[in-house]
Amino acid sequence: MIGTSKKTFQILKKYNFNFKKSLGQNFLIDSNILNKIVNSASIDKDTGVIEIGSGIGSLTEVLAKSAKEVISFEIDGRLLPILADTLAAYDNVEIINKDILKVDVDKIIKEKFSTCSKIMLVANLPYYITTPILTHLLENTSLIDGYVVMMQKEVANRLNAKVGTKDYNSLTILLNYYTDVEYLFTVPKKVFVPAPNVESAVVKIMTKKEKDIYIADTEEFFNFVRNCFAQRRKTLMNNLIAISGKDKKESLLSACQSLGIEPSRRSETLTIFEFNKLHTDLKNREVIK
């Protein structure tokens, strides 16, 4: 098995591989954790799996043993010959040397997973780009049934944070609109090489079949929500003024009052329903574009 301490160091030595800190490379060296991640995704022989960050193939190998097809995106070209070696025994794996943020994932799913009844994304996400990846996929991909992903524990705590807590932010609202989030388990630093500076966590994110709320223009709405969280220490009103301009203050106050939203509240105290009402009202008043 690739994902053990002994085997990983053998591979790194064989290929004289040096980690690139800029790519957030931290390879898992614990087979129990790898199996736990894959088991959490409920993968079977009808499942197509997308992985982001193949590394030397530790997680990819375990996925290949359970899934029908695995498409793994690896941006570091230096790893391609290593993966060709470590995954040579698996004919259901394809490595794509592209940035996940720059590909049409739905197109790839339709081309590669046409015979799969379920699509899961399972990955040890690069921590420096976790939020952009999740945001991009949720806003632009409609065919993924669910995600089981490793990320920085601090980010994991934000995904299903409660309204009014310090962890609640625009990412929480985005995830709760599109998905149901479950924090699975914490992962210690010692099971990686090199060891990261932070604790990690595995989270299960399942796409909602039906949304809890109707939002007419999701891109516009979530940009508005992100702007409302731009200055967390300031009040909702101060953030709204930063969005619209000081000349719109009276209109902003009127909108908040008509909806029963106290302008002195902070953004982390608003639910998605309140944000939606506020955004719709401000659009109708032409206070925001």
Rank of each mutant, 00 (worst) to 15 (best):
L87I: 06
N176R: 11
K68R: 13
Y128M: 13
G146D: 05
L121K: 02
Y147C: 01
D167V: 05
I129F: 10
F73S: 05
I95L: 06
E69F: 12
V148W: 00
V149T: 00
L87D: 00
I173Q: 04
V122L: 09
K98N: 15
L138P: 00
I95T: 05
S170N: 12
D85A: 03
R158A: 04
K65F: 05
N124R: 00
N157T: 11
Y168A: 08
I173S: 02
N97P: 08
Q152F: 02
L80H: 13
T141I: 14
K118E: 12
L175F: 08
L87P: 00
V148G: 06
Y127V: 04
D76L: 11
E69L: 14
L87H: 01
L174G: 02
Q152I: 03
V93I: 15
D85F: 07
I133K: 01
C116Q: 05
I109V: 12
K162P: 11
V149M: 07
S72G: 06
I95P: 00
V122G: 03
G164M: 09
V163I: 12
N140R: 08
K68E: 11
I100V: 10
D104L: 12
T141R: 12
G77L: 15
I144G: 01
I82T: 06
V62S: 05
M150S: 01
V103K: 04
K112N: 09
A84E: 15
Y168C: 10
L143T: 14
I96N: 11
Q152V: 02
P81E: 13
N160G: 11
P81K: 11
M151F: 03
P126D: 04
L83R: 06
S142E: 15
I108A: 03
L87C: 04
T141C: 15
V155D: 00
I100R: 00
D91W: 11
A89P: 10
N176E: 10
L138T: 01
N140Y: 10
M150L: 11
V70P: 07
L83F: 14
T141S: 13
S114E: 14
P81A: 10
E94Y: 09
T135F: 11
L121H: 01
S117A: 12
S72D: 03
S170P: 06
A161S: 12
V149S: 02
I129S: 09
T172K: 08
I96A: 09
E94D: 13
L159E: 01
G77Q: 14
L174H: 06
E69Q: 15
A123Y: 02
D85T: 04
L121F: 03
D167Y: 10
S72Y: 06
K112T: 07
S114Q: 14
L101R: 05
D167M: 08
A123C: 07
I109M: 10
T86E: 01
S117P: 09
L138Y: 08
D85Q: 08
A156S: 11
G164K: 07
I133N: 04
E139G: 12
